[in-house]
Design a binder for these strands. Structure first.
Lengths: 250, 250
DNA sequence: CTGGCTCTTTCCGTTCAGTGGAAGACTGCT
DNA sequence: AGCAGTCTTCCACTGAACGGAAAGAGCCAG
């Protein structure tokens, strides 16, 4: 759209989106210069586009002069289906579960070959964990991940099993062993991990079904898995409740 | 950028943002035609821009063929400061509070002359309420709203007091009465409502302070306000905890 | 199967919105 | 004062974006 474009073929929209994409978990606040670098745009262009984004509310400028994601994008994000359907419906069940166990409660879905955490409840009494809402973790080292993987299409299972990076000393890195665990997960109806993601943390998880489909996984993180039957029971009650609410709700 | 523009002066960015803005709480899924109408853009333009937005992940296309807010925008929204700082820090305290009271717990900030709900916990035992995360409600009819209003700049108080729309039969619509309640809120350190927003629901709320500034309000919604001292106590413990965590955290 | 309807996609000539180098304005730091 | 960093404004050039028109998909009723 402009004569002296340095990268012909790039659309205005792509540039604006590149600016938004410059923000991530480790870069929540960026100066104009950083934005221009990370988005690969010249300063004046960055300045103009950012000005528009701020005017609309997609970005906001802090008193310090740097930029952050704006409130309006936060609003918009809440309208995403991942939030609307699943999270909203599941929320009360997660709280019930938290109240019953006082453990960290996770609600996760599969995103490609990773686990995407859709919601997380953690009180003060809970074990510290690495996940946070919106974060992605490997499937083979988490309870919810194993559940989702066990119910995933074969191609996904192959992709994940072919590369099992080590996270802790206890992470399962042998495809055969993991495959056997996945089979057990299908038979038993739940999966567990023992310090495979972070030391001192164990987890237990069950599938959430909408009709026949497994649409999410519900998990707990605890210091140990003693009293396993009670945990599985609580999880399954909550998972069934969510599944039922999902089916009747739409 | 284009010769035959029907509305000269409009930037590409503004058009793209108009498309995003076409989504709201009541329009979470839109067809291409609806998008073009709501954004005020011609069909071909809409088609092209939406294509780019989908390619980037800002929007997603459902199997049914209509569009919704995409997962990547959801991700981005989670990076917004409103979420990052306040919500993350407050989360465990809200759960503690929920565990202690089993009431609906609200965390809200002021957004202009309205209350913006940043987080909400509600179990099955809780009173049904109209708010949801991201929604905005009038300040004069909610507990958290009264707290935030009492600590708001005078201009904001004037603006709100000059227009007090009735919501239920018990909504306070007399500026004088509300002004007195705000004074009492400052003295007592908490505010209450009694069926002013929805019948059968009362609320009680306290300010969350970061140093001297009131940055948010923390509230409970209950069927009745019996045992008020215990509720105020629990709220203040949580509010102080959040305030302290905010100060030390940054 | 056909006709009519709505929604979606592709085409393509026109032209003005967007571009970025260069220069100016602010900081804060030495 | 001088310097180095960040931010903002200016402006001539031009190809990216525009949207009317028309073709393609579905879908339902008759």
């Amino acid at each position: 759209m402009a004569g002296n474009t340095s990268t012909p073929g790039a659309t205005v929209t792509s540039r604006a989106l590149a600016l938004l994409g410059a923000f991530d978990e480790h870069h929540r606040r960026l100066t104009l210069t950083q934005l221009s670098e990370r988005a690969g745009l010249p300063m004046p262009t960055t300045h103009r586009l950012v000005g528009e984004l701020v005017a609309w509310g997609a970005l906001s400028r802090t008193p310090a002069g740097d930029y952050a994601v704006g409130r309006r994008l936060w609003d918009l994000g809440l309208l995403a289906p991942v939030q609307t359907g699943l999270r909203e419906v599941a929320s009360p069940y997660l709280h019930d579960l938290y109240g019953a166990t006082l453990a960290t409660v996770h609600l996760a879905v599969r995103d490609g070959t990773a686990v995407l955490y859709v919601d997380r409840l953690a009180g003060h009494a809970s074990v510290p964990v690495v996940s946070s809402i919106g974060s992605r973790l490997p499937m083979h080292a988490t309870g919810v991940g194993k559940v989702l993987l066990a119910h995933a299409p074969v191609e996904v299972q192959h992709a994940v099993l072919s590369d099992l990076p080590r996270v802790t000393a206890y992470t399962i890195t042998q495809p055969g062993l993991l495959r056997r665990q996945l089979g057990k997960t299908l038979r038993d109806g739940y999966a567990t991990t023992t310090e495979e993601m972070s030391l001192g943390a164990c987890s237990i998880a069950v599938p959430v079904r909408r009709g026949p489909d497994v649409v999410a996984a519900l998990g707990l993180v605890l210091p140990s898995l003693k009293d396993r039957p009670k945990l599985v029971g609580a999880l399954q009650v909550a998972a069934h409740g969510i599944g039922r609410a999902l089916t009747t709700g739409g």
